[in-house]
Structure formats: structure tokens, C-alpha cells
Simulated scan of single mutants.
Amino acid sequence: MAQVAVDVLPAAPARPATRRGAGRGDAIFAGLCRAAAVLVLVLLGAIIVELFLGGLPAFRAFGAAFLASTEWDPVGDLYGAGVPIYGTLVTAVLALLLAVPVAFGIAFFLTELAPAWMRGPVGTAIELLAAVPSIIFGMWGFFVIVPLMAGTVQPAIIDTLGEAPLIGDFFAGPPFGTGLFTAALILAIMVLPFIAATMRDVFLQVPGVFKESAYGLGATRWEVMRRVVLPYTRVSVVGGIMLGLGRALGETMAVTFVIGNANRIATSLFGPGNTIASLVALEFGESASGSLKLASLLALGFILFVISFAVLALSRWLLRARTGA
């Protein structure tokens, strides 16, 4: 009896039972992520509005002159933001001028020159430096750096650069040890690990074939860094520098210990001064609720936020213009 062959078609795969549940989970996860992003914007907006409303009495009382006035007279109830704005900008810019070259040198050494056994310990030490509390930097600066500046560094600079034409006024004055330059030096040490760690990490992300190709063409290490690594990592490097600048602009206690806390604009970098953060830290506890002094301090906080936002926006604009995006 002949047997009839019957082709059996493979059964269609069963739909996963959890597909509908997985879709619902994806929707929930996306909603939570969206809510987290919106929460950040809401918190940021709330801080801005609160600072602006709190400082509104000061803006109304002094007008636009509040930004340039150097007055800070609690007895006469006269306040101005000129001195702390000047001190904030000068110390932050000086800190970056001191920190960025050193941070670049550290990152270049760790990624291109250091032996393998040294990269781990040095990199860890740089990262641990970022974990030191700011008040520790302030105490160290006050008890170690200030006496060193007053006894050795400032007298030597005053006797040399202080007598030079054109730039002499920037290094003149008595060697007290405290002042804008000392505060900038402490800030440079504080922001150094952030910038150096960022540069090191982004330098390591450059594809090895890019560098090997440059070496194959006879390029030196510096030429590879300048023509290959830096162009490839430019955006991330600038982002790390801006991270350090944000830390420098808002630092409080370390600056308060060493800047001198004088409400006047000093032409010399060795002269005492104030920053927005240090002035708020010193004066906030002595301000009565609803007073014009408290409103002036809140207005200073709003100005500091605007300065930070303006610096970040400018850096993004420069990067976009440079890359043609």
C-alpha cells in the first residue's frame, strides 16, 4: 500500500506573552525620563524666579547703577554689585589661565608619555583631588599659601614685575599674602582635577588608527596632539574647561579664606577684594528678612546665575560657529 507523503508546514511562532507588558514598560520608562528632564527645567526656573523676585527691591531701589556701583554700606543702606562682579570675573579668569595649561600637560603626559604602571596611580590621585572639600582648600590656603605668598612670592614679584612699565600696577602694593591672585591660585588648584580628568578621558577616546596614521607619516607626539587629538576632542575639551569655570565662579568658602574680603576694586592682583559667592556667604547671616541688604544679596545671586549662563551660552556659540553646525 503506497504511503502518501504529507508536507508539514512549520508552525507560526507564538507572539511573546510579555510583548504588551513590555510596551507598557517602555512607555512608563519614557514617561519617567521625560518627567526627570522637565523636573530639571522646573527646578532651574524656580531658582531663577526666586532669586529675581527676592532681588527685585534692590533693582528697583538702585536701578541699573546697581551693577556698576562700588558702594556697600549697610549703615547707609547703599549697595552695589561692582566690586563682587569684578572680583568674581578676575579670579575665575586667572584661575583658568593658571589651571588649563597644567591640566593639559597632565592629560598629555598620562595619555602619551607616562608608562603604563604610572597612569593608574597618577590618574587616581587627580580624581581624589576633586573630592577634597572646599573648606579644606580654604584652610590650607590660609595657613600655608598665604604665609608663603606674603613672605616669598609676592615680595619677589613686587620687586621685579612691580617696577616694570605698563604692567607694574598689576603687581604693586604691600605683600599681605591674601588678595585676588591668591584666591585665583586656590581656585586653579580646585578646578585642575575636573579639567585634567576630562581632558584625559576624551584624549583616550581618539581612535588609535588616527594617531597611528599620523605617526606613520612621521609626525611627532606634539604634532599628533595638535593636529589629530585636539581637533577631534575640541568640543569635549571646551566642555571640561567650562565645567572648571563654573566651579570657579561659584566657589565660596575657599575664596572667603584668602581673598581679603574688602569691598573695593583693587588695580593690583595682590590687593584684597570680594566675589559674589564670598560676599553672600559673609553677609547673608547678618541680613534681616525683608531688608534691602537681603534683597541686594539675592540680586547678587541672580547676577551670578546670569554670568554663569552667559559664559556657557558663549562657549556653545563659539563651538557651533567653529564647527559650522
Rank of each mutant, 00 (worst) to 15 (best):
V224F: 05
T182F: 00
S287E: 08
P16N: 00
Y86Q: 14
M242H: 00
R15I: 14
I158H: 14
L39P: 02
A183F: 07
G54P: 04
T267W: 04
L148H: 05
L96H: 08
L97K: 03
L51Y: 04
V122I: 08
L297S: 03
A35R: 03
L9D: 12
G54M: 03
D201T: 14
P155N: 06
V38T: 10
L128K: 10
A36V: 13
A125W: 03
F52K: 02
A321N: 06
A172E: 00
S134G: 06
L300G: 01
L230C: 09
W222G: 11
G76R: 05
G273C: 09
M225Q: 08
W117G: 12
L180K: 13
G162V: 13
A313C: 12
V42S: 07
F305N: 15
V132L: 15
G173N: 00
F59W: 09
A107H: 04
A95G: 07
V229T: 14
G123M: 01
A172F: 00
T152P: 02
T198K: 04
I47L: 15
S278F: 07
R15K: 11
F59I: 01
W317C: 08
A196C: 04
A310G: 15
F270T: 10
V40S: 12
S268Q: 06
F171K: 02
V153W: 12
G63R: 05
F309S: 14
P207W: 08
L185V: 13
G285P: 03
L161Y: 04
P174R: 03
G246W: 06
P121D: 06
A310H: 09
E212H: 14
A254I: 15
L67Q: 01
I48C: 11
A92M: 10
M118A: 14
L292I: 15
G208D: 14
L300R: 01
V102W: 00
F309Y: 13
L41T: 09
E283P: 02
G273W: 07
P57M: 05
A81V: 03
A164N: 05
S289K: 07
G25F: 08
V8E: 10
Y79I: 02
I126P: 09
G151L: 13
T18R: 00
L294Q: 15
I303H: 08
A262T: 12
L32D: 04
L78M: 01
A103G: 09
L230H: 03
A188V: 10
G177W: 05
I259S: 13
G54I: 04
L32N: 09
L245C: 14
V8R: 07
V90P: 08
A64K: 10
A37P: 01
F109V: 13
S134K: 05
L89H: 06
L279M: 15
V153I: 15
R34L: 13
A313Y: 11
A30F: 10
G271C: 04
A17C: 00
I85A: 06
L217T: 15
A68G: 12
G246Y: 09
A107Q: 05
N263G: 08
V93W: 04
A150E: 11
A197P: 00
G151V: 14
A64R: 12
W222C: 07
R60V: 12
L110N: 07
A30R: 15
S134C: 08
F309H: 06
N263F: 14
M190V: 12
R320D: 02
A172L: 00
G54V: 06
F52R: 01
P165H: 02
V209W: 14
